[in-house]
Design a protein around this nucleic acid. Sequence first.
DNA 1: CCACTCTATTGCAACGTCGCATTCAACGTC
DNA 2: GACGTTGAATGCGACGTTGCAATAGAGTGG
Lengths: 339, 339
Amino acid sequence: MSSRLKDVAALAGVSTRTVSNVVSGSASVAEETRVRVQAALDELGYRPNVAARNLRAGRTGLIGLAIPELYSPYFGELASLIVEAAQQRAWTVVIDQTSGDPDAERRLLEGTGGRLVDGLIISPWALGPEELTGRPRHVPAVLLGERRPHGLADRVAVDNVLAADEATTHLLASGRRRIAAIGPQPHLRNETAAQRLAGYRNALRRAGLHPDPALEQPVTTLHRTDGAEAMTALLDAGIRPDAVFAFTDELALGAMHVARRRGVRVPHEMAFAGFDDIEDGRYANPPLTTVVPDKRQIAERSLQCLADRIYSPASAVPPLDVVIPHQLAVRASSGWTDS
Amino acid sequence: MSSRLKDVAALAGVSTRTVSNVVSGSASVAEETRVRVQAALDELGYRPNVAARNLRAGRTGLIGLAIPELYSPYFGELASLIVEAAQQRAWTVVIDQTSGDPDAERRLLEGTGGRLVDGLIISPWALGPEELTGRPRHVPAVLLGERRPHGLADRVAVDNVLAADEATTHLLASGRRRIAAIGPQPHLRNETAAQRLAGYRNALRRAGLHPDPALEQPVTTLHRTDGAEAMTALLDAGIRPDAVFAFTDELALGAMHVARRRGVRVPHEMAFAGFDDIEDGRYANPPLTTVVPDKRQIAERSLQCLADRIYSPASAVPPLDVVIPHQLAVRASSGWTDS
DNA sequence: CCACTCTATTGCAACGTCGCATTCAACGTC
DNA sequence: GACGTTGAATGCGACGTTGCAATAGAGTGG
């Protein structure tokens, strides 16, 4: 059905090795032969067998991207950038959705499924630091988010503590004093939410305010519904913050949606700031103030780390901690202008 | 570095074939031997070499998903469902972003990159029908969207004409008469926009209205910005429709955003309906009326088609045309209640 | 007790490709 | 005219796995 080097060689009247040389273009081939072989290649519609190449080369040219969920805007945008950057490096991306399942994350890190990928970019959700960095890995890995690496994997992330601090400070600067935090996840081993909470508290304390536990609304996941529920819980408890720092844009949008439905004027009575700079935030009503991580750099640097580990020998290089720059995009949701 | 069957066999004092039997669990192995081999497997941390397996099996266990862009909500949600459904079938998904590049789409369909995937699900953007179905393919393919198949590939899609008709009819039912259509793409060979335009016109004509070219706003791509530009163009031209049917939710959200910014009251003065049922639409202000394709079924049926083609011999089965059910979700953007 | 079946295990070969070493011919140089 | 050099093409083997056929041994029934 599909033709192999052998078939092409037979048709062109040369050895398989010569055909291989023509295909790869590496060794020297006489012009006349090259033309003849090329004609045979075209006639048979030869396509190299990737599995055989991989076996020979000891590499698959695949890298894995393991994220909790592909359908959320943040991970969708990030995945898109990673796929794009990988294409430029002639890598193909295979996507795994862990759905926040610790076993799935563990399985991927250990490579239990077999040596399919040359490297792995994983955004951990359920696994704690020690599990992530403790055990040996069969494949180079880059952790997105999380805290600084102790173990074997590189880490690429923004400075969550600083960024959360800046966002909160921005809200304080416009005179807000009762600022709610939507997004703590005390039930998870994951560090990201904890870091953003720490930044939020830092900012409050620096402004001379005491963090109020009643204003910290935990969530189970990071979807709009969770933000909506958190805001509902606050309002139903009679708590009326004058600003909200949500740990992700989706949480912020869900919360803002409920606030407006309940008749709260945004941003007059309640300002909002989020984290991630997803596209919807820019088109929300009002547009959402947010921390803007440089997602393109996250993608680029992650792949760079993988490339270094994959291609450099033995890699005695200690685990890297790559800090990605971020900005604060101030939009109407935290200003005084009406939407 | 990494251990092979041979290493495990040496350690356990058996042949590689026996180790292989233990790993696969297919052939019968004495309990005592199984235990001993398993111990060796664990000790060496054996991981099967996927490339070798693939070479032997003639399959890679990979399927390709080619979509214009991963970061758009619709494709993100769809990709997520396809990855999920593929995992259940023990398939791994590799993602290609075509970015609307006809060459990229062609390359994937022809499998120029080599026989990497066992099957391909492609959502064409730039290629026209004849290119999609004309030439022979090296790998089973499923087309998402597009029109009915003439050639070799199966096709999975909602009935775009009917769905667009229903959405428009719904707008007409609330008394709207000047209904704009945002989303025609006359510059593309792709059929989807043309089908939705046809459905929109059908509904108008059935209501005794003449489709007005001035109310049909073409777009280049399907992002929020395109919807925003389209609405800006309409309003700047002094055209003030009393309803908008946008061919995707993103277009609708962008258009609605601009309308509200310009002081148009939604839905009182202008009703909106979209297509796709992306999550943001449900949390928009006001929530967006939209055509809801059964995305889970799109994922399931696509994979089913691929599975049939991949596993069934010779496949004399003619190309399938799978029509996916849809619904119309009526929300506040097309009602009379305030947001 | 022999023929036969069944279980457990094994060796061989092949999947398609490419690195390495080799061969062969042509050519130029001393 | 012998010799080294270069260019072109080839054959061999190995990457790690598993299907197939074969083997040896244990168990069963007449």
